[in-house]
């Protein structure tokens, strides 16, 4: 600090201009009152926050321009909390700018690294400790200690086995079986081919899914089995994933995107493109469900369909490939 160079640094700083509050006691008093006023405002906001919480019923709605009908309680709590925090911060900054010292000060960093004497003393202490522990004369102790530490750090890895059980074949198959009817999702009606016009779209689930969900106590099958049915002019179909997997232009595809498994039903009936709303993967249903855009890596699995003796649309069997996103064992 006493170095002459540092004095030069000081002279390089701009000339210090005193503030009004530094030279005029009345200005300083005024600044003090302004800060106190801001803090008092924050106090009032805190009280208003508590009053709003206690006095305004949650279900009370109020019309506000730009927003429309909104919850009064939420609005007041947010306004008072936001304003209160702003006034605390504003007061603190006003205080720092008007009243706290603002002389420019240079604080020198000290050298990094310990002095040579201290380093030497530390190494000497270490050396003495090693000698006193006697590991050089008794190597058995060191060897067993290393072994103990190594084994104890590896032993907890067996807990990974508790992350299981492994999914097995659950990711590879769905509940679709040969002859299982396709029902309209939510309403549960069976579907006849003549119900579907060219250009129509239906979200479907397998017959009996409700019983399966109830028996399993989870929604796993509903995460895998949903399908969409679309009908297009048979001459529009360029390719399918199997021969005669359609029924007179009615195509059935998995509703689960092969990227990360979002349900997809953004269907453009003129282009036959199916879009995923999550990451814009786009599949061409007229061309075997091929990916034509987006992050999906695999085509959308097609479900082979036909009609049963009563004339309702049914599956020819399960999907020929796993539905949904890729997984580790699939390769």
């Amino acid at each position: 600090m006493s170095d002459h160079e540092h004095d030069d640094d000081f002279s390089a700083l701009p000339h210090h201009e005193p503030r009004m509050s530094d030279i005029d006691p009345r200005a300083a008093k005024r600044a003090e009152r302004q800060v106190a006023l801001l803090f008092t405002g924050a106090m009032l906001c805190g009280i208003a926050f508590i009053v709003a919480f206690a006095a305004v019923p949650v279900e009370k709605l109020v019309w506000v321009p730009l927003i429309g009908d909104t919850q009064l309680s939420n609005l007041l709590l947010g306004l008072f909390m936001g304003l209160g925090f702003f006034l605390v911060g504003g007061g603190a900054i006003h205080w720092a700018k008007k009243l706290m010292p603002e002389q420019e000060v240079i604080s020198e960093r000290h050298d990094t690294g310990a002095p040579a004497e201290a380093r030497q003393a530390t190494f000497k202490e270490l050396e003495r400790g090693v000698n006193e522990s006697g590991v050089r004369r008794r190597p058995l102790i060191l060897a067993t200690l290393v072994g103990a530490l190594a084994l104890m750090s590896v032993a907890p890895l067996v807990l990974i086995a508790d992350l299981g059980p492994k999914p097995g074949t659950k990711l590879r198959y769905t509940m679709w079986r040969k002859g299982m009817r396709i029902l309209v999702a939510e309403t549960g009606q069976p579907i006849r081919p003549q119900d579907l016009l060219v250009g129509s779209l239906v979200s479907g689930v397998p017959d009996g899914i409700d019983a399966v969900l109830e028996a399993e106590g989870n929604l796993n099958e509903l995460a895998k089995a949903p399908v969409i049915l679309v009908r297009m002019d048979p001459t529009d179909i360029k390719a399918q994933q199997g021969t005669d997997w359609d029924f007179q232009g009615i195509l059935c595809f998995s509703k689960i995107c092969t990227h990360v498994g979002c349900p997809i039903s953004l269907y453009e009936q003129q282009t036959h493109h199916l879009l995923c709303p999550c990451h814009q993967s786009t599949f061409d249903l007229a061309d075997g469900g091929q990916v034509i855009f987006g992050p999906a890596a695999r085509e959308l699995p097609q479900l082979a369909i036909t009609v049963d003796t009563d004339g309702y649309l049914v599956a020819q069997g399960d999907f020929a490939q796993p539905v949904g996103p890729s997984f580790w064992e699939r390769g």
Binding site: L196, L197, V198, V230, E268, Q269
Partner: peptide, 9 residues
């Protein structure tokens, strides 16, 4: 491009 949702389904 909106699909048809026929009365049958």
């Amino acid at each position: 491009n909106m699909p048809i949702f026929p009365d049958g389904t």
